[in-house]
Design a binder for these strands. Structure first.
Lengths: 201, 201
DNA sequence: AGCAAATGAGACAACAGTGACTCACTTATT
DNA sequence: AATAAGTGAGTCACTGTTGTCTCATTTGCT
């Protein structure tokens, strides 16, 4: 009803601001899911009023953030060829991609309802395939995905100098690789798969 | 300075209220860590004023809850003979005890600082012993405890009718036993131990 | 029964966060 | 350079929560 006289063209300014706000929100909310809009605005280097201009309400911001994260995740699932590649290779690739785009989960309202359903279906498919291929013992995809997401969060929060992230002979410090390896080993082991070093054979 | 005329004797009334408030707080805060004092009071069947009489501030309530949980946990650690019993048996017993007294972790402010240090030390000792005994591969006790607590939370939140909680031939539905088994298998596997059914040999 | 303690109900100010608005100023686009 | 869009800074009303207080009533103790 009260159409706020929408502008003819969206200026490059506004786009940057929107992106900055989303980035800041992701970072800030990861630490404190109840952080105020002012904190987010500060982290984005903008005024709180600007946040309100780009996002009508706090709820709207959270939903936009949810959508953005789900999009990234969904792209990751496709890129990992979750439904066609050998499941273990797909899982490893998905993990790598996830760490590369540093997806966080905690902040998001509730991944289980709303647009995140596609992502969940993709994960469930992956774990079903892993079970069918005999890579893991656990058969319930919901449980598998729960464990996966929980461990993903923990590996994500692990400080970069943790001893678990120091691989055997690899001198070059490859943070993403180390985290991916650790998460893969841990998840597969947790779900009843073999943890041998020849996993990806 | 403003000593609020402390009573000569603490009545049985007050003790019950304090306990009720702590119980309610544990339950309510497990679902929503930012629940208002009124919600907690309602869950306890008491007026908000009473909560404020027993606990000077919200912070005081959270600290008291933290202390209470840590006490229970510490008692569990001793009861499981974490430092003397065979480590795998100790872990299993600790898990059982934890589920019996239904300890939740999320609500607590931050278990890593304050009086919770003793508990963490106990857990670290347990995982060090598990590694030394060759039960698990992971050697960093901090990482082990992180994984343990994360999975504990997930198993705790698992609905009672989840397929993962239905054991092989055991007809009698033993919820705590099923959860304990699942958690033990998952944790040991996640930390690089064998997941065979003959674990406790 | 009698007293002190504890509670419920309600009012109260203080405070933080949200959302809407204005106005002067800056920036992007043409 | 001119114009439209975007921003910063500030104000304002509104809401929910916290913490304090009072007073009538109920409850536990002896």
């Amino acid at each position: 009803m009260s159409a706020p006289t929408r502008p003819e063209k969206v200026r490059a300014d506004a786009v940057r601001s929107t992106a900055r706000i989303l980035e800041a929100a992701e970072d800030v909310l990861a630490v404190d899911p109840n952080a105020s809009l002012e904190k987010i605005a500060d982290a984005a280097g903008l005024a709180r009023a600007t946040v309100h201009r780009r996002f009508a309400s706090r709820k709207a911001l959270l939903e936009a953030l949810d959508v953005a994260l789900n999009e990234r995740y969904l792209a990751g699932l496709q890129q990992a060829r979750v439904s066609t590649a050998p499941p273990l290779a797909a899982l490893y690739r998905l993990i790598e991609i996830t760490f590369e785009i540093k997806i966080r989960h905690r902040p998001v309202v509730d991944i289980s309802q709303g647009p995140g359903q596609e992502v969940l279906n993709g994960l469930d498919l992956l774990f079903t395939r892993l079970h069918d291929a005999g890579v893991i013992t656990a058969s319930g995809p919901v449980w598998c995905r729960t464990v996966f997401l929980a461990l993903l969060t923990e590996v994500h929060l692990l400080p970069a100098d943790a001893p678990e992230l120091a691989p055997a002979g690899n001198n070059p410090p490859d943070d993403i690789g180390a985290r991916s390896d650790l998460l893969l080993r841990t998840v597969i082991g947790a779900l009843g798969g073999s943890t041998g070093p020849e996993l990806l054979g």
